[in-house]
Amino acid sequence: MKPMTDKTTFYDTSISETGMNCIKFFRLTRNALGSDSDEALFTILIERNALFDSVDQLSSLLSPEYVEKVISIERKILTRLEKEREKIVLHIDSISRHINSLKAYSAKFPIPSMPAFFDQTG
């Protein structure tokens, strides 16, 4: 009989490595939820994105209660991402308006015809 090793292969990755990835995944999830800045959120989530496969592989081994908890946490991440997406879309829209306004603007004689451009307060 073949002796049992401490590393049992699970697909092409060892269970211990998958487990470590899962731990890292949940740590990053927690960090993402706790991050204040958008930049930090994206950096963490991009790093976390590479670990989804490991969690998917082990999800069948998790208890239903734990899965529910993970789902609940992931929904929070999803909600935050949706909000970020909304903010980005609004920002893009605003920039597009600025670009269009700039294209429409030209200094006309004798007075530039768009006084709204000029901030009288300096």
Partner: peptide, 22 residues
């Protein structure tokens, strides 16, 4: 925006997988 949408998509898929698993 593209990255955000990618992350949203992956997160949604993850939730779906977990629900199936559950």
């Amino acid at each position: 925006l593209n990255i955000t949408e990618l992350l949203i998509s992956r997160s949604g898929q993850f939730i779906e997988n977990l629900e199936i698993s559950s």
